[in-house]
Simulated scan of single mutants.
Amino acid sequence: MTELQRNFIERLKLSLPPYQNAAQSIAECLQISPNEAYKKLRNQSSVTLQQLVKLADTFKVPIVYQPEQAPTVTFSYPKISGEKSDIAEYLLDLLNNLKLIHASKEKHLTIVTDDIPLFHLFKYPELAAFKLFFWFESLGNQPQKFNRSYIDDDVLRIAQELNRIYLEIPSTEIWAKDSIHGSLEQIRYAFEAGYIADNSLAEDLVMQLRYCLTDMNMYAMSSKKTIDVAHTFNWYNCDVLGTIAYLTEMNGTMTCFNRFNTFNFLKTEDHDYCKQTKAWMQGLMRKSVSFSGQGEKHRNKYIYQAFQECDALIAEIYKN
């Protein structure tokens, strides 16, 4: 129980906001004295299985247990039915995860992806709304028409807060050579299928993709996402990618998010799994072309080709 307890307590402390006293929170939850709670925090006193379950339920921290020598991994994920009302709940879950990373003293986020990371797209209102429309409507049987007011202002504010916080987290992104292709094809499909009836709206979506790529170029040129030198950014391009994954590193612990069902994610804090994922990502970096800093030649070529694809889609929109 000692290793299980130590692992759980560390993750519990990470899940609490900086202003919340861990010992006091545990004492109130388990109805024990603060002194006893401190002993449990220091692993000087055992946490019973019943207490462990109560803490897990209260603070929404999963109990991760792996039988010795058994190659099993426990994942958690946000349950989404596909209803439009789920959008705010989905984004708030993302926001809570991102705030947890942001609040850590030592932090880094590594992303391996074949699509533009959604945190970048959330800067732009129509593009953010379209991405959420495409993802959530893909779960239903009868997609509705897309318009600029698909998401309300409250949901949009959450999306833009996600963008703001992400820009302040040091990160490394490894993109596939055609990462922009997925978003362009989604816009093309929605337009050709009649879900976007307004040509100017379709054009605005493509133009916002261009603006997003311009942002990426600026981040890569300076190797940071804001004027703060601590908000470092490293951008790579890799011809061959496998799993779409996000790996967070916070104060010596790691969490891995694997994407599934187009946009949802499986989350695990299993140490061996995260360690293996990190080694895989580091291997990809060695095989990749760096777009950051001095990688101007390769970066410019990539951006130019992406802009050509955007322009070609705009021409198709008005041709029809």
Rank of each mutant, 00 (worst) to 15 (best):
A190M: 02
A159Q: 12
T232Y: 01
G182H: 00
Q208S: 09
D154H: 14
E185Y: 10
F291W: 07
E185D: 01
C274D: 04
M207T: 00
L156C: 14
R164Y: 13
K278R: 14
M207K: 05
D204L: 07
T226W: 03
T262W: 03
V229R: 06
M281Q: 04
M254N: 07
C274T: 00
F191I: 00
E168M: 05
A230W: 06
A230K: 13
N251G: 05
M218D: 15
N199H: 11
L241A: 00
G293N: 04
R259Q: 14
N261E: 07
M254H: 08
S288W: 10
E161R: 13
W235H: 09
C274A: 06
G194T: 09
T172G: 01
M250H: 04
D228T: 00
W235S: 10
G182W: 01
D154E: 15
W235T: 05
E192G: 04
N217H: 07
H271I: 12
V155K: 15
L213H: 06
N234V: 00
G194N: 05
S183P: 11
K287G: 02
A190Y: 05
W280Y: 15
M250F: 01
D198A: 13
W235C: 08
K275E: 02
K225T: 06
D204V: 07
K275T: 06
Y166F: 11
H181F: 03
Q276D: 14
L209Y: 00
K275P: 04
D154V: 15
M207C: 03
K275Q: 10
D215M: 08
S288C: 10
D270C: 09
K177T: 07
H231E: 13
Q282V: 02
A245N: 12
F265R: 08
C256N: 07
D228S: 06
L266E: 12
F260V: 10
R157I: 14
L167Y: 13
A202G: 04
K287T: 11
I244E: 09
K275D: 11
F257W: 12
Q160N: 15
R286G: 05
A202S: 07
P170Y: 03
Q186K: 12
L162E: 09
R188G: 00
N264T: 08
W175S: 00
W175Y: 14
Y195F: 15
Y166M: 11
Q276L: 15
C256D: 01
V229M: 04
I187V: 01
